[in-house]
């Protein structure tokens, strides 16, 4: 089955390969995450499919921000979903929201991968070229975005995770703190240090942006 990766084609992929599961999935679409997670803990494949479709894009994006590499991000998310499939019976809704629990799994997987990564490996997909003098504004914006993404991966892991959760994932400070298993004060400290470091790394881009008409 060839699909283009969009949410609808993914749903089709799951559906066409497992018509019975698809039918079951439709009945589960309205269920909240914690109910689905409990069903996955009982081996319910349709519930697993719904959770995958609902969360895969968000977590691949999150992992990509933290790791700076799409293939590594997809590996991390795959491992996280394996852990979900195997450990869903351990999920306890009284302790954490499903999203908090699963973000923790993905984040820990990302941090594990980062530790194992060769120190000299450059983030894939970020062929950073200094195009500040280039005439094409669109190209300059793309290159600036690459430098920002690269700078994000150069932050200490937990600073990068904190910024990603608060700035790109749109989570509240309480949710981000829960995922990182910190109190609010410690989260704010991570964010402040992360922003300060990013400002240093991106000083030239910031100056250029300030000078832009």
């Amino acid at each position: 089955m060839v699909s283009d990766g969009s949410p609808s084609s993914r749903a089709d992929s799951f559906a066409n390969s497992r018509p019975a599961a698809e039918e079951a999935s439709h009945g589960l679409l309205a269920e909240p995450d914690h109910v689905l997670a409990e069903l996955v803990g009982e081996g319910n494949r349709a519930a697993y499919s719904v959770l995958v479709t609902r969360h895969v894009d968000r977590h691949v994006g999150f992992a990509e921000r933290v790791l700076g590499s799409r293939p590594e991000a997809e590996d991390a998310v795959q491992e996280a979903f394996v852990k979900l499939w195997i450990n869903a019976h351990r999920y306890d809704r009284s302790k954490a929201k499903f999203t908090t629990w699963f973000y923790r799994i993905v984040l820990n997987q990302c941090l594990d991968q980062k530790r194992k990564k060769r120190p000299d490996a450059l983030p894939e997909g970020f062929d950073v070229v200094d195009g500040r003098d280039g005439p094409d504004k669109e190209l300059q914006d793309v290159q600036r975005a690459q430098r920002v993404a690269l700078a994000l991966t150069e932050l200490p892991d937990r600073q990068a995770a904190a910024i990603t959760l608060c700035y790109f994932e749109g989570l509240t400070n309480r949710e981000a703190a829960d995922i990182l298993e910190l109190n609010i004060k410690a989260l704010e400290s991570l964010l402040t240090r992360g922003r300060k470091r990013l400002a240093q790394l991106l000083a030239e881009d910031a100056a250029e942006l300030l000078g832009a008409p």
């Binding site: 060839v2 699909s3 283009d4 990766g5 969009s6 949410p7 084609s9 993914r10 992929s13 799951f14 995958v52 895969v56 894009d57 691949v60 799409r70 997809e74 998310v77 795959q78």
Partner: peptide, 8 residues
């Protein structure tokens, strides 16, 4: 970008 078809 959304997750790849291969990952799915």
């Amino acid at each position: 970008a959304p997750a790849s078809a291969a990952l799915c």
